[in-house]
Design a protein around this nucleic acid. Structure first.
Length: 489
RNA sequence: GAGCCACUAGCUCAGUCCGGCAGAGCACCUGACUUUUAAUCAGGGUGUCGCAGGUUCGAAUCCUGCGUGGCUCACCA
């Protein structure tokens, strides 16, 4: 035993002594396979057919109410809760005493007859009880549940046991992901898996995690994005691909950021960013309709209407409307000065696009509550997007904002290898100027482009943030089962 | 990284302003109770008051430092 019993809390000692008593009586407290015929929910919904019939159920004992020679309990399985009822004159004194000794938290198998009590509660009248797992620790309080955020994360299993809405959120997450996959599969997109460990961490501006492969004596990065590998697949002849998987970014933790998060990236050859806009509208609205059954989504105090089409605003135009400044008429220095006058912080040597973007994020983003596409981002902040034909300072790139938050990012992919090389070189300049988040130069990717990549539209959707929206929660922690936290001690 | 706030029983929380025996509910233990459902009734408090110092006759309470977490801001796709 790991810990000397002398140091255990009395509550824990009591349960361990019950465990010993059970073993002394020849009862194994940790059972094996148990044949179930129904879930708690199935008994509730199928009561009219099941009344008077025998069922087998299993779950965790969540409440006990003794009444002398009869007793009630609540059994909780994944589907919900069902009441059980025992009478000593029906199960006999041994089983009845056995039940009285059970603890809240124990996992039981129950065989019995479905009936309705005189107060109307659908109940299983117990004929036989099987202990499947003895619980040695008390559960959190039955009425208030587990509230302490730190404990909820450190012991998510307790959170899931006692806070039903938490379980609901993660079921919803699973349904959202399933809806996304089904939508894409139905349209002929192929799900692929590209490296999590990459010699060059490309596809985004972020600080990567590093790791090391012994046999190859090789430093590797955990990927910050799958983008450059998915585009290699376009070069290789895959025409419609997607990947739903984790990205890792070595950055701060907040209500909107977790170091590992889930990204959906989609690439479609011979398409462009206008196709990606339609795809985004259909993807998000289909997922919402399938999972929630509605396109009107309550989020905080507001109702978000996801019915397409969504407004498309030009990046520079939204900035002009909010600030009265037409940045297309300014150069980089003037743009930085404008930012400075608005008390928006920008780097001393910020590029034109970086300065405008700083203002955009400050003045425009939070106001984009209903779904809105913002189009044509500056090339300075879009090193992988195709340059606009009619304005070389801009790219065919859009972002989707909902509830003031970026949900999707997409572009007509840059497939000009020479332009791509120059963009990487610019990023290299930034890196040398001390920007730890500048894109890395990926020579092999440029080589791939040199063989020819078909024109393509690419789309990235932050799955966690999409789930946050549909689940109406304000923290990314509420949609990640085990978010990163500092371990104890 | 900065500011504010929190940390007291297994859980949810009072008590801290204004220093004076460590509290409640749930859970748990003992007993009663054959249709309850936050069951009820009678009895029982189970504790490193986050940690370490300091002030004081006396600190959960005041002061300092630290730790962990939350929120906001900053940073960041």
């Amino acid at each position: 035993m790991h810990e000397p019993e002398g140091e255990l809390d009395e509550l824990l000692l009591v349960r361990r002594s019950k465990l010993r008593e059970l073993r002394e009586k020849g009862i194994e407290p940790y059972g094996g396979r148990y044949e179930r015929t129904h879930s708690a929910l199935e008994i509730h919904t199928g009561f009219t057919d099941l009344e008077g019939k025998e069922v087998s159920i299993a779950g965790r004992l969540m409440a006990k109410r003794g009444h002398g020679k009869a007793a009630f309990g609540d059994l909780q399985d994944f589907s919900g809760r069902i009441q059980i009822h025992l009478r000593q004159d029906e199960v006999g004194p041994d089983t009845y005493q056995f039940f009285k000794k059970l603890d809240i938290g124990d996992i039981l198998g129950v065989r019995g007859t479905v009936f309705r009590t005189k107060t109307g509660e659908i109940t299983v009248g117990v004929k036989a009880l099987t202990l499947l797992a003895k619980s040695l620790r008390p559960l959190p309080e039955k009425w208030h549940g587990l509230k302490d955020v730190e404990l909820r994360l450190r012991q998510r299993y307790l959170d899931l046991i006692v806070n039903p809405e938490v379980k609901e959120t993660f079921v919803l997450r699973s349904k959202v992901v399933r809806a996304l996959r089904r939508f894409l599969d139905d349209r002929g997109f192929l799900e692929v898996e590209t490296p999590m460990m990459q010699p060059v961490a490309g596809g985004a501006a972020a600080r990567p995690f590093t790791t090391y492969h012994n046999a190859l004596d090789l430093m590797l990065y955990l990927r910050i994005a799958p983008e450059l590998y998915l585009k290699r697949l376009l070069v290789g002849g895959f025409e419609k691909v997607y990947e739903i998987n984790r990205n890792f970014r070595n950055e701060g933790i907040s209500t909107k950021h977790n170091p590992e998060f889930t990204m959906l990236e989609i690439y479609q050859a011979y398409a462009d960013y206008t196709d990606m806009m339609v795809l985004t509208e259909e993807l998000v609205s289909t997922a919402a309709q399938e999972v929630l059954g509605t396109l009107e989504v309550g989020y905080g105090d507001t109702v978000i209407n996801l019915r397409p089409p969504w407004p498309r605003l030009s990046f520079l135009e939204t900035v002009r409307q909010r600030t009265g400044i037409d940045f297309s008429q300014l150069d980089a220095r003037e743009a930085r000065e404008a930012a400075h006058r608005m008390e928006v912080e920008v780097e001393q040597n910020a590029l034109w696009g970086e300065a405008v973007n700083a203002i955009f994020e400050e003045a425009v983003e939070p106001a984009l509550v209903q779904p809105t596409f913002v189009l044509d981002y500056p090339v300075d902040i879009s090193p992988l997007a195709k340059r606009k034909a009619d304005d070389p300072r801009l790219t065919y790139r859009f972002e989707l904002f909902i509830a003031g938050r970026e949900i999707a990012n997409a572009f007509s992919e840059l497939n000009d290898p020479l332009d791509q090389r120059e963009r990487f070189l610019k990023q290299l300049d930034k890196q040398q100027a001390g920007d730890e988040e500048a894109h890395m130069f990926d020579e092999d990717f440029v080589t791939a482009l040199e063989y020819g990549m078909p024109p393509a539209g690419g789309l990235g959707i932050g799955v966690d943030r999409l789930v946050m929206l549909l689940a109406n929660v304000s923290s990314i922690r509420e949609v990640i089962l085990f978010p990163l936290h500092r371990p104890r001690e």
